[in-house]
Design a binder for these strands. Structure first.
Length: 728
DNA sequence: TAGTCTGGGCTTTTT
DNA sequence: GCCCAGACTA
């Protein structure tokens, strides 16, 4: 077998290390997926492990699929073994847990056809609870409560032990209780429940635990630094006393603390498994040495970490470019122009380029720049496909058919498209259901089957007719769901409710929405024989990254978060301004600032050949356009590796060329300009120069100056401390 | 009941 | 500047 021959010594050590707890600290681009897949094959080939005793856990479906694909391509295994690779348990934490819970549903407080509530469903449930409990969303933000509930679940905090020391905690406690009740009443679980219920199951029943420990004898974990407490607990429960636990991670790439991830799990692992072998992967196969040196200069500023020396044999490569644009539009133009230059000179394909930013809102100016230039682009995430109204609507119908207990879905579709069912009728329906101790869908069905029943006197003739408009097809779908295929069912629903006509409002948007539904049909079609349960599960557990396709040769726009795990020959990181990166919300917390730095590090290390960093002299964040300070991270870049203006501390205002800009009407009385084109001025840092142009902006003045030594700079009068030398 | 208006609020979002 | 939710009006 030659699947060891192309590994470096550290990789080989990791692949062939004997069973036991093993921690691989893998730098970016060090071939960790390769190590994971080779180890799986090695275990099967050399040590006779059976594939279905191997569990490999990832965080995204994409990573799971990629691992599967790489296993398929490996030369090593014999034909028989290769086909048996299908029985490997490779998946995300959440999908593996969902599978376990469906299998063990008899002993759980839900049935095997539970649905998974996504973020929007959870929010809608919380809104309902706030209403029920008469809570003022302005006094206590549902979002905060939601976060607190999720955090408690991730931390495996028992609801009973949650102390109510403050009003907020008291509210959270009450909402939490009701939230869990309602989830179960809906036969639904949220993402966190998937993990938590499995942990409770394994903790509470030694027999079940023994069964799964015997089943998953070899466990491999990717992106271990992003595990939360529940996931860590899950792993140790499955691993048991004789752990064959192989975890791969990089604490420097931990960027999901706000989702409960805790990279200290890496240290915890070493403490909990004192015999654990630690292997360091430092050789990088992705980037040039210049990019790696920049990356290390950035990350080395974080304290309390194990330092890694990233190196490559790829050579020094090009210097990193730093560009200051005038504003976010100018920044977009610069990115588009530069990509055009790269592609016109045949240096790179458009698809080789990626543009990364801190917040989704920053994609807007970029998209506009691409539209201006009439060039295509691929956008990852943001308004994710499955978050679109039309897609959610149809999925809600499918979910309701699959699980008639799902009241959140019922309320979503009950009047979509409009069929004259308003708030009052809905209230009546819910109350009738409550009185009869039935699910609302049950009441609807009875309405169809026995329209004479006395209990329906509550509804006016008009309300009854409107309700029947939904109830009649719904009861038909429920009768058909087991007999017809997934795609047929979806088509029946779409046509029965006249959804196409509803979407078609004559606008391009309506057309686009219909196209999206066609895309959803394609997804259903691709899943082929998959039943409704699995279809809905897959749909609930997709990620932004999963929607990234390779079919279009165009630059990719994505957040730094969704860039993790990817690589591109050319990477732009835009918005290197204080407040954007690092984000303003992280300023006052050292650990958050460290995470912002890791985020920047993740972005830098995505680049194979070229890295271009941009910032803007002024930027609109939330509200009006404001002058922005260069990111403090720029101060850490080694000047020798950078092309462009490195900011010094506090005295730097960079070069730029100004594109035509539109100016908002000043709300304040504008000041009188102090400077004129042609004036000679002196700046404390840049020395002498000539004023090229000047522009009054509300209560300040922006001046372009050609300095004798420093070249063209844009300055702000109030900050620049300029001395007028003569009035030529 | 349904469309329009107003105001608050604003990271990131593997599942 | 934009989006969502709830209020308000036809």
């Amino acid at each position: 077998m030659d699947y060891l021959s192309d590994l470096n010594p550290a990789q080989r050590e990791a692949v062939t290390a004997p069973p036991g707890p093993i921690l691989v600290l893998a730098g970016p681009g060090s071939g960790k997926t390769r190590v994971l897949t080779r180890r799986i094959v090695y275990r099967i080939d050399q040590l006779g492990a059976t594939p279905d005793a191997i569990m490999a856990v990832t965080f995204t479906n994409k990573a799971a699929r990629e691992m599967m694909a790489r296993l398929d391509n490996l030369q090593g295994p014999e034909q028989t073994e290769r086909s048996s690779l299908r029985s490997l348990n490779i998946g995300t934490f959440h999908s593996l847990c969902a599978r376990i819970l469906r299998r063990e549903a008899e002993v759980m407080p839900f049935t095997h056809d539970f649905v998974i509530f996504d973020e929007a469903d959870q929010r809608s449930l919380l809104r309902q609870i706030f209403k029920d409990l008469n809570l003022d969303p302005k006094q206590v933000q549902p979002r905060r409560v939601h976060d607190a509930i999720s955090r408690a679940k991730n931390e495996l905090t028992d609801i009973e032990t949650l102390v109510a020391e403050s009003y907020f905690q008291e509210i959270t406690h009450r909402v939490f209780e009701r939230y869990q009740q309602l989830l179960l009443a809906n036969n639904a679980l949220d993402f966190d429940d998937l993990l938590q219920y499995v942990v409770l199951l394994l903790e509470g029943d030694a027999n079940v635990r023994g069964r799964y420990q015997a089943r998953f004898q070899h466990i491999l974990v990717d992106e271990f630094q992003d595990t939360n407490t529940a996931q860590y607990r899950l792993l140790s429960l499955l691993a048991g006393d004789r752990p064959d636990l192989f975890v791969v991670g990089d604490p420097d790439q931990s960027i999901y603390r706000w989702r409960g991830a805790d990279y200290r799990n890496v240290r915890r692992f070493q403490e909990n498994y004192p015999g654990a072998q630690t292997i360091l992967l430092e050789q990088n196969y992705r980037s040039t040495q210049t990019i790696l040196d920049v990356a290390m200069a950035v990350i080395d500023r974080n304290t309390g970490r194990q330092k890694k020396e990233l190196f490559t044999v790829r050579g020094v490569g090009e210097r990193v470019v730093l560009h200051e644009a005038y504003d976010e539009n100018d920044e977009g133009s610069y990115v588009v122009d530069t990509i055009a230059m790269f592609t016109l000179s045949d240096a790179y394909d458009p698809g080789d380029c990626a543009i990364m930013y801190r917040t989704n809102a920053q994609s807007r100016a970029l998209e506009e720049a691409f539209l201006r230039a009439n060039l295509p682009y691929r956008l990852v995430g943001a308004q994710r496909f499955y978050g679109r109204r039309e897609v959610k609507d149809i999925i809600a119908y499918m979910r309701l058919i699959h699980n008639p207990m799902d009241q959140v879905s019922l309320l979503r579709v009950i009047n979509t498209p409009p069929r004259g069912i308003g708030a009052k009728t809905i209230d009546q329906l819910l109350q009738t259901a409550d009185t009869l101790d039935q699910a609302p869908v049950q009441v609807l069905i009875s309405l169809v089957e026995d329209s004479q029943a006395a209990m329906f006197d509550a509804f006016s003739g008009r309300a009854r007719k409107s309700l029947l408009d939904l109830a009649e097809p719904l009861s038909r779908w429920l009768g058909e769901k087991d007999r017809i295929g997934l795609l047929d069912l979806m088509d029946t629903v779409i046509s029965d409710i006249g959804y196409r006509q509803y979407l078609d409002d004559g606008t391009d948007e309506g057309l686009e929405r219909w196209e999206n539904l066609q895309e959803l049909r394609r997804v259903a079609f691709d899943m082929g024989e998959l039943d409704l349960t699995l279809f809905l599960e897959q749909v609930a557990l997709v990620s932004d990254q999963d929607t990234l396709t390779e079919d279009q040769n165009a630059p990719t726009l994505l957040t730094l978060h969704s860039a993790k795990g990817l690589e591109f020959p050319v990477v732009f990181i835009i918005g290197l301004d204080d407040g954007a990166l690092p984000h303003q919300r992280s300023f006052d917390d050292a650990e958050s600032m460290a995470e912002e730095r890791r985020l920047f590090y993740v972005g830098v290390t995505r680049a194979k050949d070229r890295l271009l960093l941009t910032r803007a002299f002024r930027r609109r964040m939330a509200g009006p356009s404001m002058l922005s300070e260069p990111s403090r991270f720029l101060l850490d870049l080694p000047p020798a590796l950078i092309d462009g203006d490195l900011p010094g501390p506090h005295n730097w205002i960079g070069t730029t060329y100004r594109q035509q800009t539109t100016w908002e009407a000043p709300h304040k009385k504008p000041i009188e300009p102090r400077f004129r084109a042609g004036m000679r001025v002196r700046h404390p840092v840049f020395g002498e120069g000539i004023v090229i142009s000047t522009q009054v902006d509300f209560d300040d003045e922006e001046i372009s100056i050609e300095f004798v030594d420093a070249g063209l700079k844009n300055l702000v009068a109030s900050m620049a401390n300029l001395e007028i030398m003569d009035d030529a």
